Simulated assay, not measured.
Amino acid sequence: MAATRLTVPSASEVMIAEWGTTGKSLGNLLNQSRGFLDYRMIWAVAAGFVLPSVLIYQPVVTMERRIL
């Protein structure tokens, strides 16, 4: 359960890794939006990674509490 709790929020780390290795996808979109000062797109991309992490993390914590 501890490993699951640690891996779920890693979506932001994956975004940084994919941008660093490929220079494409959402990491690149985030960087371009920052350059154009497009704050709506910056928040949309960030929410696209953070919200799923939070939505998956909460059931994992609930399941862990029930097991323990």
Rank of each mutant, 00 (worst) to 15 (best):
P59I: 08
L26W: 10
I42V: 09
T4V: 10
T62M: 03
S10V: 06
L37T: 09
A3T: 11
S12K: 14
G27F: 01
L37H: 11
G48T: 05
Y57K: 12
V61F: 06
A11K: 05
V61I: 14
I67Q: 11
A3H: 08
T62S: 04
R66N: 00
L29E: 09
T22K: 09
R66A: 07
I42W: 01
M63D: 07
M63Q: 12
D38E: 07
P9W: 00
M15D: 04
A11C: 04
F49S: 13
V54N: 02
A3R: 07
Q58K: 10
G20E: 15
I67Y: 13
F49C: 15
I16E: 09
M63K: 10
L6D: 09
W19I: 03
V45M: 13
L30Y: 06
D38F: 02
N28Y: 13
R40N: 03
S25M: 15
M63C: 13
Y57L: 14
L37C: 06
A17N: 05
G35N: 07
A44R: 03
I56M: 08
N31L: 04
A17Y: 03
P52C: 09
I56V: 02
T22C: 12
I67S: 09
I42Y: 02
L68P: 00
R66G: 03
E13P: 03
K24V: 10
L68S: 11
I67A: 12
T21D: 15
E18H: 13
M1W: 00
L30V: 06
A17G: 05
G35F: 06
M41A: 06
V14A: 13
L55K: 00
I42E: 01
L29Y: 02
G20P: 11
L55P: 00
A3E: 08
F36R: 14
V45P: 02
F36I: 08
L55W: 08
N31H: 06
M63H: 07
R65D: 12
V50Y: 05
L30F: 12
G20W: 15
M63G: 09
R5G: 14
L55N: 02
E64C: 02
L51D: 12
R65S: 04
I67D: 14
E64I: 02
L37P: 04
V14I: 11
G35T: 05
Q58D: 07
G48K: 01
L55E: 01
I67G: 08
A44W: 03
W19K: 04
K24Q: 15
Q32F: 14
L37G: 07
T7A: 04
T4D: 12
G48M: 01
G23A: 06
T62R: 07
F49E: 13
P52F: 09
S53F: 01
N31C: 05
L51Q: 13
G48F: 01
M15L: 13
Y57M: 12
G48H: 01
V8C: 03
R66S: 02
S10L: 12
